[in-house]
Amino acid sequence: MEEQNIQKFSEQCKNIFEQVRRDVIGQNEVVEGTIIAMIAGGNVLLEGVPGVGKTRLVRSLGRVFNLPFSRIQFTPDLMPADVTGTNIIVRDDEGNSKFQFQPGPIFSNIILADEINRATPKTQSALLEAMQEHSVTVMGVSRKLEEPFFVLATQNPIEQDGTYPLPEAQMDRFMFKLIVPMPSLEELVDIVNMTQKTMAEVAEAACNGEDLLMMRKTANQIPVAQEVMEYAMKLCSATHPDSEHATAATKKYIRLGSSPRAGQALISAAKVRALMNGRFNVSYSDINTLAYPVLRHRIKMNFEAIAERVSADEVIRMILDDLGHNGNKDGAKSMIEENKKK
């Protein structure tokens, strides 16, 4: 059975990538990151300028995973009830009035929260419970959301007028923040060629919700060596300026470090990445690669970093360099570092 699951996992991964590739050209890291997060059960925040394919990617994933898909266009006048749903008065067969819950668009498996930072904090916070507990409470009644449940949100980094930056609590509920870059020249040519033929999305279902949950379960079994686990946790701890593991870069540029959720996200995602790469254990390279999408939105930069225009990614790279397993192609150096630490 387990053998079959593993076999199925790799086949489905292959199919998922193949199908997504039919709709989305380029953006390999974003596609991989989003699929990893979805298999690991995390929410994803996609940040990029308009027109780089954020919404298309999410829609395409909805179809590939063959899951109900809701799109919520966040605007300043959007109310929490517009997201969660509300009780409305209806008449029953006997003509009596009664409240009946009308589910909002959040009652779906994949939620595309488009331009999430345009909504007011009150509306944004309507997603908090759904993102973490996968449930919605309206008028004192909690309702479970159907599994698997994901929020894939997009935001534009350029436009700041009329936007409300996401609060830390909400940011922390996103497993990954993925930066969607501008396509390269070759990719741009391919995109234009493809859309000249048809704008329609052609990706087909590669798996369903049950398959996705099974893939998550399979990936969860991947073992993590104690040293790798300690390294991942040390990395999260090193983002705190007051921590004993804080590096020079942390103390210089970071005001607030990551929460324990970052550690959970890092390990869950690393397990999926390892299995996707045909490995049955988590490696330092998994942790190092995933450190950027997991940590970049969870650390708050201080004034010095903003003044020197040091990005979160640069600080993460500095921390990884200091911890000694980053880009480790020379085992010898690593060994010395290990001995030094010991």
Binding site: E2, V224, A225, R279, F280, V282, S283, D330, G331, S334
Partner: peptide, 25 residues
């Protein structure tokens, strides 16, 4: 640890830890 650093991506260190584990994975 030394061999893992030379491209085996923590396979051996995990193997040593799972030496007595008889689970499928």
């Amino acid at each position: 640890r030394r061999i893992d650093a030379l491209g085996l991506e923590e396979r051996l260190i995990t193997m040593t830890e799972l030496e007595n584990d008889d689970s499928y994975i």
